[in-house]
């Protein structure tokens, strides 16, 4: 895997509603830790504004665009609860930041994904076109 990437990284936070089980004090502690953490990254120019996502929404699927309003956005441990965009150049640095997330201690997991400069589909379509040209050449 190439670890350099000029386009930055996206952190996707996945978890169920773990915070429902915490006491008021514990919760306030996590919130303060999290806020201080994000403020520091932002001040260092490493994070762009991120946001939590509401625990509701819809899923659209299929040729006819069927809409399902009750997604598993609250219960599932795989549900995405928020995101952060990082302006760092290597996967290693993005991972190190992900590892410093305060909410990891409470069972969230963090997906670290490089942002693509160009749509990967487009790149692949060009590759295929080139391969076909070679075959016909």
């Amino acid at each position: 895997m190439s670890t350099q990437n000029q386009n930055g990284y996206m952190l996707l936070y996945r978890s169920d509603e773990w915070y429902e089980a915490l006491s008021h004090e514990e919760l306030q502690k996590v919130i303060n830790q999290n806020k201080a953490w994000i403020d520091r990254l932002t001040a260092q120019g490493k994070a762009r504004p991120g946001h939590a996502l509401e625990r509701k929404g819809a899923i659209v699927s299929g040729k006819n665009g069927r809409v399902l309003f009750d997604g598993p956005f609250a219960e599932s441990k795989e549900a995405i609860g928020g995101y952060l965009l990082l302006d760092v150049e290597t996967l290693e640095e993005a991972i190190a930041i992900a590892q410093s997330s305060p909410s990891l201690a409470y069972g969230t997991s963090v997906e670290v994904r490089p942002l693509a400069e160009e749509c990967p589909l487009d790149v692949r379509a060009r590759e295929l076109a080139r391969e076909e040209q070679l075959v016909h050449a």
């Binding site: 915070y19 919760l27 996590v30 919130i31 999290n34 946001h51 939590a52 996502l53 509401e54 625990r55 509701k56 929404g57 819809a58 899923i59 659209v60 699927s61 299929g62 040729k63 665009g65 809409v67 997604g71 956005f73 995405i80 928020g82």
Partner: peptide
């Protein structure tokens, strides 16, 4: 807008989520 996604006929699913103004936990 999600229903216009060109990937839908090819099995792509679109999750539509409201962005929270502040952390919903706070």
């Amino acid at each position: 807008i999600a229903r216009e996604c060109p990937g839908l006929p090819y099995g792509i699913r679109v999750e539509v989520r409201p962005v929270a103004g502040e952390c919903p936990i706070a």
